[in-house]
Design a protein around this nucleic acid. Sequence first.
DNA 1: CTGAAAGCGCTAACAG
DNA 2: CTGTTAGCGCTTTCAG
Lengths: 366, 366
Amino acid sequence: MSRSPHPRRRATLASLAAELKVSRTTISNAYNRPDQLSSDLRDRIFAAAKQLGYPGPDPVARSLRTRRAGAVGLMITEPLNYSFSDPAALDFVAGLAESCEEAGQGLLLVAIGPNRSVEDGSAAVLAAGVDGFVVYSASDDDPYLPVVQQRHLPVVVVDQPKDVPGLSRVGIDDRSAMRRLAEHVVGLGHRQIGLLTMRLGMEPPNGTVKPAVADPQRLSTPHFHVQRERVNGVYDALAAAGLSRGSLTVVESYEHLPSSGGAAAEVALNANPRITALMCTADVLALSAMDHLRGRGIYVPGQMTVTGFDGIPDALRRGLTTVVQPSMDKGRRAGRLLHHPPRSGLPEVELLDTELIRGRTSGPPA
Amino acid sequence: MSRSPHPRRRATLASLAAELKVSRTTISNAYNRPDQLSSDLRDRIFAAAKQLGYPGPDPVARSLRTRRAGAVGLMITEPLNYSFSDPAALDFVAGLAESCEEAGQGLLLVAIGPNRSVEDGSAAVLAAGVDGFVVYSASDDDPYLPVVQQRHLPVVVVDQPKDVPGLSRVGIDDRSAMRRLAEHVVGLGHRQIGLLTMRLGMEPPNGTVKPAVADPQRLSTPHFHVQRERVNGVYDALAAAGLSRGSLTVVESYEHLPSSGGAAAEVALNANPRITALMCTADVLALSAMDHLRGRGIYVPGQMTVTGFDGIPDALRRGLTTVVQPSMDKGRRAGRLLHHPPRSGLPEVELLDTELIRGRTSGPPA
DNA sequence: CTGAAAGCGCTAACAG
DNA sequence: CTGTTAGCGCTTTCAG
């Protein structure tokens, strides 16, 4: 003879209170302050809740009242399977998720793909019920960053853009890490070097999405800071060794496909057949390039040195010479910065350490 | 002489109304029903909003009022970098994200890692401000599924668990897809077959996380339906060909590491050196197994047939014989089921099509 | 330990 | 086109 478990009207805290003839406060306390009532009453309340199908305080109503949404927003301005095709990005998200879990916070994905209008995307940012935002690796001129800022919530930028006044950031010193790597390559004796980069700007260069040699103008466009810094790191090393900029052939891979590295390598080697080392700004590019070289019968490192960046598991397993960056830790730090903001109230920049790995893919030129 | 852009008290819809001496409705209309007021007034309102730093209606308050949270929850009971190490899972999320974008909904990740108490995890489910849940590939006895159900929100299960009364599901016919694949392998003449599976249960078998031969008891534990169905599909094919169950050696890979497939292959070949075909319930396992075989100097398909499951890009590129399943579409459908529930109100099961790809990794036994 | 009162910020009738 | 009224479901003082 038990009553229907799902009355037409959804159970609320108030209806539970009425049913049990106690005040709403008491019900609220049962869920939020167990020490404020007898465990006996508390048990009765939970029993009644179960019986009425009351799932506990409504999260939205609670958020309105407490002024805390209980979630952080992760803003990514690329298609997800695009961003997440890089294990480094994935590790970052895992780290962020971990720190959110610890803080009892949710993680709201605000992924704005390229086939949405800026209006729609902005609406998504404005509609996100969150206590703060993590902006993941956005372009300097990302149209949604201003919208995020408009919400007057805590924001942490990851990697890029750099130097946004008032925003905390976690990243690494891309330039000097890449410089050290390039010094290693130059130190081995390489004088003609190819550098394969991920996209340098939001729009494809010269209207094509195929890998292409990046001209100086493209290199100076104010778009993706991280890639630019890594390129500059190589130039730093060249300059320090007294080499001209001409010894470097930069090829931009606009698309991020599994085969992009190989395609870019091809372009670089065609542009300058004397290249003896291919540096890559991402391990995924380097691994793909290596596959491609193998297909062409070019032996690594005997005939060609290859280096990467990131230190993803696959790369380490294959002995790639690369820079390991703590991707997961980046996520954790970003979360922590949001959940436990610095007491000063001032924005903070956290630069994490990287490690140069001299693997089995770099050696003296043939 | 403009006033401070950030008054101590955050601007609200009401304060804007007061400032402009119009009613709150009018402000609300400016944001939600542009046709309900002169565009002139609307512009004035937006100008004032900008000036006061009002970012538009508070999402939480709006949600409370409209009874719509504007987000769906994606529940994953594994560490993210674990789940997402499989490109198929990633594509699924991308598809789901796409459909959420279309519907103007957010996507809240409810990722409950293994090092949280069930209590904490349940709290996360209960605290999620969402309009519905997608449960991704959970075990039959996932402790959080009942908690999700307790919220009385629409739920869509992806892949597993199967046959939860009242819940919609999107998946594929794992058993018959695997059966067809096995028929292909058996048809080629293989009589001693190894089958490498992902984890079959939440707890490690016999307390070890290393790949191990799965005994009949392990195979009948009520845990991960999908793996079980795929195993059964192989048995179906064997039975149809008049082969005994003994011709199949099942090895469970509890961990999902990049090298797991190779390790499992090793276990299978040691358990039965006469194996001439290695079937795998996931492409990631198959690819790793192939790498391992190459290392051991075993030629594929000449000396060993290898098959996968999923149809991830890497697998197709390498010519793996496999079953292609529409992972991204699964995500889209799951989202659509949530955003546009069937008019009948009844739960719906959508089984998507799969395609058998006879690649370059299967051939007659040596 | 329990209850009464006062909103959190917003939208949805319904009247003008 | 604009304003008035009434909550959405909850938490939080502050008194008992």
